[in-house]
Protein backbone atom coordinates (compact mmCIF):
# COMPACT_ATOMS: atom_id res chain seq x y z
CA UNK A 1 0.00 0.00 0.00
CA UNK A 2 1.18 3.54 -0.74
CA UNK A 3 1.08 5.66 2.39
CA UNK A 4 0.62 9.41 2.34
CA UNK A 5 3.64 11.50 3.30
CA UNK A 6 3.34 14.36 5.78
CA UNK A 7 3.40 17.56 3.77
CA UNK A 8 3.36 19.77 6.87
CA UNK A 9 6.43 21.83 7.61
CA UNK A 10 8.74 20.22 10.16
CA UNK A 11 10.09 22.34 13.01
CA UNK A 12 13.36 24.06 12.08
CA UNK A 13 13.72 27.34 10.23
CA UNK A 14 13.37 26.98 6.45
CA UNK A 15 16.93 28.17 5.95
CA UNK A 16 18.26 25.44 8.21
CA UNK A 17 16.08 22.96 6.36
CA UNK A 18 17.53 24.33 3.15
CA UNK A 19 21.12 24.18 4.40
CA UNK A 20 20.88 20.48 5.15
CA UNK A 21 18.73 19.55 2.17
CA UNK A 22 20.36 17.87 -0.82
CA UNK A 23 20.19 21.03 -2.87
CA UNK A 24 21.21 23.31 0.01
CA UNK A 25 24.38 21.38 0.76
CA UNK A 26 25.29 21.34 -2.88
CA UNK A 27 24.75 25.05 -3.14
CA UNK A 28 27.09 25.73 -0.23
CA UNK A 29 29.75 23.68 -1.98
CA UNK A 30 29.21 25.67 -5.12
CA UNK A 31 29.31 29.04 -3.37
CA UNK A 32 32.46 28.14 -1.46
CA UNK A 33 33.79 26.86 -4.75
CA UNK A 34 33.32 30.26 -6.31
CA UNK A 35 35.29 31.94 -3.56
CA UNK A 36 38.06 29.40 -3.89
CA UNK A 37 38.17 29.79 -7.64
CA UNK A 38 38.29 33.52 -7.14
CA UNK A 39 41.20 33.09 -4.77
CA UNK A 40 43.26 30.85 -7.02
CA UNK A 41 42.65 33.22 -9.90
CA UNK A 42 43.70 36.27 -7.94
CA UNK A 43 46.60 34.44 -6.40
CA UNK A 44 47.86 33.47 -9.80
CA UNK A 45 47.70 37.05 -11.01
CA UNK A 46 49.61 38.10 -7.90
CA UNK A 47 52.21 35.44 -8.51
CA UNK A 48 52.65 36.60 -12.09
CA UNK A 49 54.39 39.69 -10.77
CA UNK A 50 57.36 37.36 -10.51
CA UNK A 51 57.84 37.89 -14.26
CA UNK A 52 58.04 41.63 -13.78
CA UNK A 53 61.08 41.17 -11.63
CA UNK A 54 62.17 40.68 -8.08
CA UNK A 55 60.93 43.98 -6.70
CA UNK A 56 57.44 43.67 -8.10
CA UNK A 57 56.71 40.35 -6.40
CA UNK A 58 58.29 41.47 -3.18
CA UNK A 59 56.34 44.69 -3.27
CA UNK A 60 53.15 42.69 -3.84
CA UNK A 61 53.97 40.37 -0.93
CA UNK A 62 54.93 43.33 1.20
CA UNK A 63 51.66 44.99 0.34
CA UNK A 64 49.77 41.91 1.47
CA UNK A 65 51.71 41.79 4.73
CA UNK A 66 51.01 45.46 5.33
CA UNK A 67 47.30 44.75 5.39
CA UNK A 68 47.96 43.56 8.96
CA UNK A 69 44.74 42.59 10.75
CA UNK A 70 42.77 42.71 7.50
CA UNK A 71 45.03 39.99 6.16
CA UNK A 72 44.03 37.83 9.08
CA UNK A 73 40.40 38.50 8.43
CA UNK A 74 40.89 37.35 4.85
CA UNK A 75 42.82 34.31 6.01
CA UNK A 76 40.14 33.29 8.48
CA UNK A 77 37.48 33.82 5.86
CA UNK A 78 39.36 31.61 3.42
CA UNK A 79 39.82 29.03 6.13
CA UNK A 80 36.09 29.03 6.85
CA UNK A 81 35.32 28.73 3.15
CA UNK A 82 37.66 25.79 2.61
CA UNK A 83 36.35 24.29 5.83
CA UNK A 84 32.71 24.45 4.81
CA UNK A 85 33.59 23.32 1.29
CA UNK A 86 35.24 20.23 2.67
CA UNK A 87 32.67 19.65 5.39
CA UNK A 88 29.75 19.69 3.01
CA UNK A 89 31.42 17.75 0.25
CA UNK A 90 32.25 15.03 2.72
CA UNK A 91 28.68 15.08 4.05
CA UNK A 92 27.35 14.77 0.51
CA UNK A 93 29.78 11.99 -0.17
CA UNK A 94 28.67 10.03 2.88
CA UNK A 95 25.00 10.33 1.92
CA UNK A 96 25.69 9.44 -1.69
CA UNK A 97 27.46 6.27 -0.60
CA UNK A 98 24.45 5.33 1.50
CA UNK A 99 22.01 6.08 -1.33
CA UNK A 100 23.77 3.67 -3.66
CA UNK A 101 25.23 0.92 -1.47
CA UNK A 102 25.25 -1.76 -4.16
CA UNK A 103 27.33 -1.19 -7.27
CA UNK A 104 26.56 -2.85 -10.58
CA UNK A 105 28.54 -5.97 -11.34
CA UNK A 106 28.86 -5.02 -14.98
CA UNK A 107 29.69 -1.40 -14.38
CA UNK A 108 29.81 1.05 -17.20
CA UNK A 109 30.51 4.64 -16.19
CA UNK A 110 27.67 6.34 -18.04
CA UNK A 111 28.31 9.86 -19.25
CA UNK A 112 30.24 10.99 -16.15
CA UNK A 113 33.80 12.16 -16.76
CA UNK A 114 36.84 10.87 -14.86
CA UNK A 115 37.27 14.36 -13.51
CA UNK A 116 33.73 14.37 -12.15
CA UNK A 117 34.19 10.98 -10.53
CA UNK A 118 37.50 11.94 -8.89
CA UNK A 119 36.41 15.20 -7.27
CA UNK A 120 37.00 13.82 -3.81
CA UNK A 121 40.47 12.54 -4.61
CA UNK A 122 41.57 15.61 -6.49
CA UNK A 123 40.11 17.81 -3.80
CA UNK A 124 41.88 16.04 -0.97
CA UNK A 125 45.20 16.09 -2.76
CA UNK A 126 44.73 19.78 -3.37
CA UNK A 127 44.10 20.06 0.36
CA UNK A 128 47.32 18.24 1.08
CA UNK A 129 49.04 20.54 -1.35
CA UNK A 130 47.70 23.64 0.33
CA UNK A 131 48.93 22.42 3.70
CA UNK A 132 52.36 21.73 2.29
CA UNK A 133 52.31 24.97 0.40
CA UNK A 134 51.57 26.97 3.53
CA UNK A 135 54.30 25.16 5.39
CA UNK A 136 56.55 25.83 2.41
CA UNK A 137 56.15 29.52 1.72
CA UNK A 138 53.97 31.03 4.37
CA UNK A 139 55.16 29.36 7.56
CA UNK A 140 58.57 28.40 6.18
CA UNK A 141 58.54 25.13 8.06
CA UNK A 142 59.84 23.13 5.12
CA UNK A 143 62.97 25.28 4.96
CA UNK A 144 63.38 27.61 7.96
CA UNK A 145 65.94 29.63 6.05
CA UNK A 146 63.04 30.99 3.95
CA UNK A 147 61.83 33.03 6.88
CA UNK A 148 65.13 34.77 7.25
CA UNK A 149 65.65 35.57 3.58
CA UNK A 150 65.52 39.30 3.28
CA UNK A 151 66.27 41.91 0.67
CA UNK A 152 66.00 45.65 0.36
CA UNK A 153 63.06 47.23 -1.41
CA UNK A 154 63.44 50.98 -2.05
CA UNK A 155 65.39 51.61 1.11
CA UNK A 156 64.07 49.33 3.81
CA UNK A 157 64.52 45.57 4.25
CA UNK A 158 61.66 43.21 3.44
CA UNK A 159 61.08 39.49 3.32
CA UNK A 160 62.59 38.22 0.03
CA UNK A 161 59.59 36.31 -1.28
CA UNK A 162 61.08 36.32 -4.77
CA UNK A 163 64.27 34.66 -3.65
CA UNK A 164 62.27 32.23 -1.58
CA UNK A 165 60.20 31.12 -4.54
CA UNK A 166 63.26 30.76 -6.76
CA UNK A 167 65.15 28.75 -4.18
CA UNK A 168 62.01 26.78 -3.42
CA UNK A 169 61.47 25.71 -6.99
CA UNK A 170 65.13 25.01 -7.71
CA UNK A 171 64.37 21.92 -5.63
CA UNK A 172 63.24 19.55 -8.39
CA UNK A 173 61.13 17.12 -6.27
CA UNK A 174 59.23 20.07 -4.79
CA UNK A 175 58.55 21.52 -8.24
CA UNK A 176 57.35 18.13 -9.47
CA UNK A 177 55.03 17.83 -6.50
CA UNK A 178 53.66 21.31 -7.24
CA UNK A 179 53.06 20.44 -10.86
CA UNK A 180 51.26 17.22 -9.97
CA UNK A 181 49.14 19.00 -7.39
CA UNK A 182 48.31 21.74 -9.84
CA UNK A 183 47.26 19.14 -12.37
CA UNK A 184 44.85 17.70 -9.85
CA UNK A 185 43.55 21.17 -9.13
CA UNK A 186 42.96 21.52 -12.86
CA UNK A 187 41.03 18.24 -12.85
CA UNK A 188 39.01 19.41 -9.88
CA UNK A 189 38.15 22.66 -11.50
CA UNK A 190 37.43 21.43 -14.99
CA UNK A 191 34.43 19.61 -13.57
CA UNK A 192 33.95 21.95 -10.65
CA UNK A 193 33.56 25.32 -12.31
CA UNK A 194 31.12 24.11 -14.94
CA UNK A 195 29.32 22.15 -12.30
CA UNK A 196 28.75 25.10 -10.04
CA UNK A 197 26.76 26.91 -12.70
CA UNK A 198 24.44 23.91 -12.90
CA UNK A 199 24.20 23.73 -9.12
CA UNK A 200 23.32 27.40 -8.85
CA UNK A 201 20.75 26.92 -11.59
CA UNK A 202 22.08 29.43 -14.05
CA UNK A 203 22.47 26.95 -16.89
CA UNK A 204 19.86 25.82 -19.36
CA UNK A 205 19.73 23.38 -22.25
CA UNK A 206 21.39 25.88 -24.60
CA UNK A 207 24.04 27.39 -22.34
CA UNK A 208 25.34 24.37 -20.45
CA UNK A 209 27.51 22.88 -23.20
CA UNK A 210 29.04 26.29 -23.86
CA UNK A 211 29.67 27.08 -20.20
CA UNK A 212 31.33 23.71 -19.76
CA UNK A 213 33.73 24.22 -22.65
CA UNK A 214 34.70 27.67 -21.40
CA UNK A 215 35.26 26.53 -17.82
CA UNK A 216 37.40 23.59 -18.86
CA UNK A 217 39.52 25.99 -20.86
CA UNK A 218 39.72 28.28 -17.86
CA UNK A 219 40.88 25.43 -15.62
CA UNK A 220 43.65 24.62 -18.09
CA UNK A 221 44.70 28.26 -18.26
CA UNK A 222 45.02 28.37 -14.48
CA UNK A 223 47.05 25.17 -14.65
CA UNK A 224 49.40 26.43 -17.34
CA UNK A 225 49.72 29.78 -15.64
CA UNK A 226 50.66 28.22 -12.33
CA UNK A 227 53.08 25.60 -13.58
CA UNK A 228 54.81 28.20 -15.74
CA UNK A 229 56.39 29.51 -12.51
CA UNK A 230 58.22 26.39 -11.28
CA UNK A 231 59.09 25.56 -14.89
CA UNK A 232 60.60 28.95 -15.63
CA UNK A 233 62.56 28.74 -12.39
CA UNK A 234 63.87 25.27 -13.32
CA UNK A 235 64.66 26.37 -16.85
CA UNK A 236 66.35 29.45 -15.47
CA UNK A 237 64.06 31.92 -17.19
CA UNK A 238 63.47 33.30 -13.72
CA UNK A 239 66.55 33.46 -11.58
Amino acid sequence: MISAPSTKRSGPNPIVLWLFSSIGKKTVVALSGIVLVGFVTGHLLGNFTIYLGKDWLNAYAEHLQSLGPLLWVIRLFLLAVVGSHIFFTMLLWKENQAARPKKYIASDPIQTTVFARTMRLSGLIVLAFIVFHLAHFTAGIVDPSFKTMTTTLDGHTVHDVYGMVVVGFKNVPVSIFYIIALFLLMMHLSHGIGSLFQTLGVTNRATRPLIEKVTVAFAWLLFLGYISIPISVLTGIVK
Binding site: S22, I23, K25, K26, L92, E95, N96, A98, A99, R100, P109, I110, Q111, T112, A116, R117, M119, H191, G194, S195, Q198, T199
Partner: peptide
Protein backbone atom coordinates in the same frame (compact mmCIF):
# COMPACT_ATOMS: atom_id res chain seq x y z
CA UNK B 1 17.82 9.37 -2.54
CA UNK B 2 21.34 10.70 -3.04
CA UNK B 3 22.48 14.21 -3.88
CA UNK B 4 23.27 15.46 -7.34
CA UNK B 5 26.94 15.78 -8.26
CA UNK B 6 26.13 16.79 -11.81
CA UNK B 7 27.30 13.53 -13.32
CA UNK B 8 24.60 13.59 -16.04
CA UNK B 9 24.30 9.82 -16.21
Amino acid sequence: FGNCSNYYA
